[in-house]
Design a protein around this nucleic acid. Structure first.
Length: 751
DNA sequence: GGCCCGAGCCAC
DNA sequence: AAACGTGGCTCGGGCC
């Protein structure tokens, strides 16, 4: 636990963790249903269904109309005749409530204006501000904009908090129908030397957004000292919302903000900030930087108590913000002609397959699992699992049973490729004809990047081919080879496991030969032993159950168990690594990566203690060393033990899997982030760009005059990012089209 | 018509 | 009772 306020954090983190649990959501939904049922009036019912705080859009008015209709038709079955609804349309009533609620919040907001919030509207006021800014080694900064599209919207005002001078300002520059305002260019020019000076610290909440917005107006901000959104995720990766106002509402009492802080949407709904009156805008916007600064100080209290986290934040996450901005700004070029052509080709294929499917199954929607299940299991009487699933695995199992299955699988493949990628990507182009997705450095609990709008990390090979390098440029893909097993080799310290890497042998072949006790010559590329070993090692790292592993390998559960036991016998330190992780997370409720990133599991200790105690009792009762694989069907386990153990088994084992995985996957993520920093330094000096990252691969945009020596220097940037006691290897692909390149040895170098 | 969720599936 | 970790997108279908 990083933050001191144990009770609060514990509750918070528990809530956050449970939010991830589907069971909790179901329970919540059931509770909601019950409350709705119990509501005695239409108003109550509305509240329960939508929540009073959510009155904001025209959409809700539409809903309201429907509620009214439902009331009138007696559908809701309530004893509230329509005429009793205050004589007005329901929608009007809601509009009234909505307005009243908003106005109340806004009135409260206006009344709350502190004396040190200042509106800057004249040149004199602005010059006085700049004079004070000269004495600030660091300040908080924020932009207000017409919207959240960083490639379309514009800045309508900026706010600053000057901590030494002790006041907070909002400078409107493009508000509609408002009082006197300075011009945007004048204000940005005045602030430029402070915003671009790397030695003047800027503190922002979600700096990436503001850096993009400043770039819209031709300014490159430098000198990000602290990003409170990112730091929050480092302090608590389970934080459910890192929206500034939500953090203020939740933690504000620890840094001087009592009561609720309303989000923009709460106060202004879908309005454009340019239309917000200046007095209101001041309080809202100046509060943003004010909050950001206080949150920053509070976060620093906690970070300084945890040197490892401070280091992780300062040296890794904070400088990465600039790289995220660069990746997003760079974007990906799409070969639209190829996309068009390929799309047509796929559509042609799809039409053929559809014809076949109609002949087999009739005119149904083949995209609908429900309709499909009805045809497959009810009409055609194919053998159904208990779940009537229509997923690929199930369908493959039914292949021999019906001639329509094969084309159905083909249909799935084609619609996925076409609908999710080939047709979708060209729609994502921005004004400059490139795709600018967003990369989020703190979206995952393990530290990996996430990518969205579109997700460029899950393009299948065939869709990657739509992405090309612009003329005069090349795409460079440098990926870490087997980074996760290498991390396991390093962290476990297992000398036998490290051996193949140190000797330059193939990992899986060597492992397979040892575990299966067959000559190395029988474990070469493509051999069944090597294949099994590869899956087996993945199972070890991901904590796969013996049941799943047996299915994957097509062997019995007992055989799978013997296989993994055999592996642990040969590599005892790997086993110890896993057991140590379990012990550590039981004791500390967190695990850490090689570079200090933490994943916390609040509340695990208690459950793990129960788990271990009950496991010991079961072993004693059975006279075995471990809880048997057939725990659930085992008749020898006393009923009450079975019930009690069953209650904690799933969750404890889940945490243990996540903990082991977080150490390995998280360390790999750290290494990639370190690599990106090295690459950024190298490419920036040459005007090249970092394009993106796909977990163990860095994508770069480089000039086509690049030399072999330069490629090798880029590779060195990657390799030296990993400080492992086993060699680290990278592979580079040189491409004009993503996924269609050559290895550096095969490339025809210009120079 | 938008929101939400599950099923299914793509990547590493 | 549940069986593999981390994500995001599309679709159908239910909701109002």
């Amino acid at each position: 636990m990083e933050l001191n306020f144990d009770g609060l954090m514990k509750t918070m983190e528990k809530a956050a963790l449970s939010e991830r649990g589907a069971a909790e959501r179901v329970k919540e939904a059931q509770g909601k249903k019950a409350r709705v049922k119990a509501a005695t009036s239409w108003e109550d019912r509305w509240k329960q269904i939508f929540g009073m705080s959510k009155f904001k859009s025209g959409l809700d008015r539409q809903r309201a109309e429907r509620v009214k209709a439902a009331v009138e038709n007696g559908v809701l079955g309530m004893d509230v005749p329509p005429e009793k609804i205050t004589g007005k349309l329901v929608s009007e009533k809601f509009r009234e409530l909505e307005l009243a609620e908003k106005n109340e919040k806004i009135a409260k907001l206006l009344k709350s204006k502190p004396d040190n919030y200042r509106l800057i509207q004249t040149e004199d006021q602005f010059k006085a501000l700049l004079a004070d800014l000269r004495h600030e080694p660091a300040f908080a900064f924020d932009t207000e904009t017409t919207g959240v599209d960083v490639y379309q919207d514009v800045i309508v005002g900026v706010s600053l908090t000057l901590p030494r001078a002790g006041y907070h300002v909002y400078i409107p520059v493009a508000h509609n129908n408002a009082g006197p305002q300075l011009r945007r260019s004048y204000v940005l020019n005045g602030l430029k030397r402070y915003l671009t000076d790397p030695t003047v610290g800027k503190v922002l909440h979600n700096a990436k957004f503001d850096i993009h917005m400043l770039l819209r107006h031709g300014m490159r901000m430098r000198g990000l000292a602290h990003d409170t959104m990112i730091a929050m995720k480092i302090l608590n990766e389970n934080e459910p919302s890192v929206a500034l106002k939500n953090l203020a509402t939740r933690y504000g009492k620890f840094f001087g903000f009592d009561g609720e802080s309303h989000t923009f949407e709460d106060l202004f709904g879908k309005a454009c900030f340019a239309d917000v009156p200046l007095d209101m805008a001041l309080i809202y916007a100046a509060k943003d930087t004010h909050l950001t600064w206080e949150l920053y100080k509070w976060q620093m209290e906690h970070l300084t108590k945890r040197e490892d986290l401070l280091k992780l934040y300062r040296e890794l996450e904070n400088p990465l913000v600039d790289i995220c901005v660069e990746m997003e700004q760079t974007g990906f070029a799409v070969d639209t002609a190829f996309a068009q052509e390929y799309g047509e080709e796929l559509k042609g294929e799809l039409a053929e397959v559809e014809k076949t499917l109609v002949a087999h199954f009739g005119e149904i929607n083949f995209n609908s699992p429900a309709q499909l299940a009805e045809v497959l299991y009810d009409r055609l009487g194919l053998p159904q699992g208990k779940e009537r699933s229509t997923d690929v695995k199930t369908l493959k199992g039914l292949k021999g049973r019906h001639p329509g299955i094969e084309p159905l699988l083909k249909y799935r493949e084609l619609t996925k490729l076409l609908g999710t990628y080939v047709e979708a990507l060209p729609h994502q182009l921005k004004a400059d004809g490139r795709i600018h997705g967003s990369f989020n450095q703190v979206a995952t609990v393990t530290g990996r990047f996430a990518s969205r709008e579109p997700n460029l990390q899950n393009l299948p090979p065939r869709a990657r081919r739509l992405i090309v390098a612009p003329k005069g440029w090349l795409l460079l893909g440098i990926d870490f080879s087997q980074i996760e097993p290498r991390i396991l080799a390093h962290m476990s310290g297992d000398p036998h496991f490290r051996e193949p890497y140190l000797k330059g042998e193939d990992l899986y072949s060597t492992l397979a030969a040892r575990v299966f006790k067959v000559p190395l010559s029988e474990c070469g590329d493509g051999s069944k032993y090597r294949k099994m070993m590869k899956i087996g090692l993945l199972a070890v790292m991901y904590g796969t159950s013996m049941f799943t592993l047996s299915e994957q390998l097509g062997i019995s559960v007992e055989e799978a168990h013997r296989f993994i036991e055999g592996f642990y016998d040969e590599y005892p330190d790997v086993y110890a690594f896993i057991k140590d992780t379990w012990e550590f997370v039981k004791k500390n409720e967190y695990v850490a990566t090689l570079y200090g990133r933490k994943r916390r599991f609040p509340g695990h200790r208690e459950q793990a203690i129960v788990y271990d105690q009950l496991a010991a009792k079961i072993c004693k009762a059975l006279g075995t060393e471990r809880v048997p694989l057939d725990f659930w069907s085992n008749k020898g386990i006393p009923k009450d033990l079975k019930r009690k153990f069953g209650a904690v088994k799933g969750e404890v084992e889940r945490v243990r899997r996540m903990a082991v995985n977080a150490r390995i996957q998280g360390t790999a993520a750290d290494i990639m982030k370190r690599a990106l920093l090295n690459l950024y330094e190298y490419t920036r000096a040459r005007g090249w760009k970092i394009n993106g990252t796909v977990h163990d691969e860095a994508l770069l945009l480089v000039r086509d005059t690049i030399t072999l020596a330069e490629v090798e220097e880029l590779e060195a940037c990657m390799v030296r990012a990993a400080e492992l006691e086993v060699p680290v290897k990278v592979d580079t692909e040189i491409m004009a089209r993503w996924g269609d390149g050559v290895k550096k040895g095969e490339y025809k170098w210009v120079a």
